[in-house]
Design a protein around this nucleic acid. Structure first.
Lengths: 359, 359
DNA sequence: CTGAAAGCGCTTACAG
DNA sequence: CTGAAAGCGCTTACAG
């Protein structure tokens, strides 16, 4: 733990090797223009003396600068989720900007494929040192990744994973497992002959792999749970934006058993769970166990009221934060980077929510 | 976000103020020996030009060094919990050591009050720049804090809180709330006429404020829950280390109703929950909902087997990590520090545990 | 292929 | 009370 021995410096190595500091520097950074024999000699001494570069002095002297760019959905009323990752990006940047890092945040409207593409083009035309990308649209991402890889620009995928790409890392949640967690929570609170509705509230425009995987994990759990073989699952997909239609669809599917109230669970596969909570509240339907995703303001309210039982959170702020740190570790600290950085699947209740809100 | 304007340096200010860099430095760091008039002038320009010091250059030039010391229980077979915070301390140190920070970790055997005291004495006799302290023993802590405060050594409390002290911060969990979370989880899974046992597995030697507060939160929850007014709570305190006695005590309290199996919850108020799980497994008693604390190896096993239903985790690694960063922010970055840094109350199940193990 | 010198932005004695 | 100079450990042209 303790290093009593004074720090070894480049000048120490230079002296011992009988060369100049410049030569040692060339060896250490593999910049060539050094005789092989000299190189070996210096390398040996570097190892022998256990040299560790002073990163502060190094960045101060080198005057290198790094431009990090992020491309994420814009947070707005329809998409409050993205406010947190955006904040997380900024906060991490604040902590590392002394190392000559700048951060440009680019945005696109969540469902706007064209905007996504054109922002990506802009980025490619003014290449950054590293890119943090929320790869919402799969095809466009794959196309861009081809160019980015060629240009040797390291890319971190944020929140969404596109498989088989040359991204240096993915930072986000494992959606299949989060579905299993929800399954577990519903099973734990329901009778063994309960009925469960899986509700997908989606736009038709894609960007829904998350949701599919969450449902997949959820169903997997029940298909392998002996305990709950009598539980019935049915899926409801609602794409309509029209409130009236929404209500009647819900009523049709979950309202029916109201006469003979029976243990009934509802799994909303994304952050729109507050819409279902609103419906239940309006209709005075209390006999439901309701679980969904993300700590949006609206969801918080229903969680505190007890209409939503659990929310699954995916550490959105930390996702943004970790993405920046990942690029920093790769480019400035030259560390090895894990390809997948899965964040915890947090289970949130009325009782612990306050401890998750800043994070 | 973008700062196109070149960074403003001390020399820029010096030039504009018509003084030397040394004088600007004296003003910025309040080191006196500057005429009031000069001081005002420089200060005005500093503000006007929006000067932000280059922390890298500053630490490189100043050659200051900081000695951080931690005093925590030693992790051992009887106390595996403390391995994680210890690791967290080390990891944070790795990330900031470039700033001239060293870390000395001191330890004491968990229940050894004398060792705690004598280690504290050692620390006070060789004063560090800052101290991270797990204040297990309240009285001794209060005594030491008097001296430490006088010596102006900033102290961060780790994991345990002692009230009304001059510590700059506390990093840990809010035990009362964690008790409420457990109450919620048990209530959610039990019938309304269930019976719940609260089991405190403690040594008589003190250091148990945590446990008392967890039970307090737990009981508070039920005393204000209309829904579960029929639930019976009873507390069992077991101080014995003798396995036979342990078994017979448990049998007496929770074994009784086995004939007429009824919904039964068990809340173990600390990480020793695996002892109760062992007992239930051995006796083949399946009709229990069991919740306890911390991701010890032993607990993990029983969680995966389904004998423990939920574990509450308190981000032990992050606690250690954040403590070091707190001292760093206070001493090197000169930032404002929040007095209480509560970490999330994580709810862990078989399905999400893998995503919490590295943290 | 190699070395000497200047410089990154800030701090620290020292001389006056 | 103030300034000039040297130095922190590393990197970057430049000359040879």
């Amino acid at each position: 733990m303790e290093d009593n021995l004074a720090k070894v410096k480049i000048s120490d190595i230079a002296e011992k090797a009988g060369v100049s500091a410049g030569t040692v520097d060339r060896v250490i950074h593999n910049r060539g223009e050094v005789a092989e024999k000299t190189r070996q000699k210096v390398l040996a001494i570097v190892r022998e003396m256990n040299y560790e570069p002073d990163i502060l002095a190094s960045t101060l002297a080198s005057k290198k600068s790094y431009r990090f760019v992020s491309l994420t959905p814009r947070a707005d009323a329809a998409n409050p989720f993205w406010a947190s990752p955006t904040e997380g990006l900024k906060q991490a940047w604040q902590e590392i900007r002394h190392f000559g890092v700048s951060l440009d945040q680019y945005f696109f409207p969540y469902h706007d494929r064209a905007a996504f593409t054109s922002e990506l083009d802009k980025i490619i035309n003014n290449p950054p040192s590293g890119l943090i990308l929320a790869p919402i649209f799969t095809e466009q991402t794959i196309q861009a990744m081809e160019k980015l890889t060629q240009m040797k620009i390291p890319v971190v995928f944020l929140n969404t994973l596109v498989e088989k790409q040359q991204n240096i890392s993915f930072v986000g949640q494992a959606p299949v497992y989060s579905g299993m967690v929800v399954a577990r929570l519903l099973e734990y609170g329901l009778h063994q002959d309960a009925q469960i509705s899986i509700i997908n509230l989606v736009s038709e425009k894609g960007g829904n792999t998350h949701i599919l995987n969450r449902e997949k994990g959820f169903r997997e759990y029940f298909s392998s749970s002996a305990k709950s073989s009598a539980i019935q699952l049915n899926t409801i997909n609602i794409t309509s934006q029209d409130p009236l239609e929404f209500d009647s669809l819900l009523e049709k599917h979950i309202g029916i058993d109201d006469v003979k109230p029976k243990s009934h669970g509802i799994f909303v596969t994304n952050s729109k769970v507050f819409l279902v909570a609103e419906f239940l509240e309006k209709k005075g339907m209390k006999n439901f166990n309701l679980v969904g995703y993300d700590l949006l303001e609206q969801n918080q309210g229903f969680l505190r009221k007890g209409i939503i039982d659990f929310l699954i959170s995916q550490q959105p702020h930390q996702q943004g934060y970790n993405s920046v740190i990942t690029l920093f570790n790769a480019l400035i600290m030259k560390k090895e980077i894990a390809k997948n950085q899965y964040l915890p699947i947090d289970i949130i209740t009325k009782e612990n929510i306050d401890f998750y809100l800043n994070n």
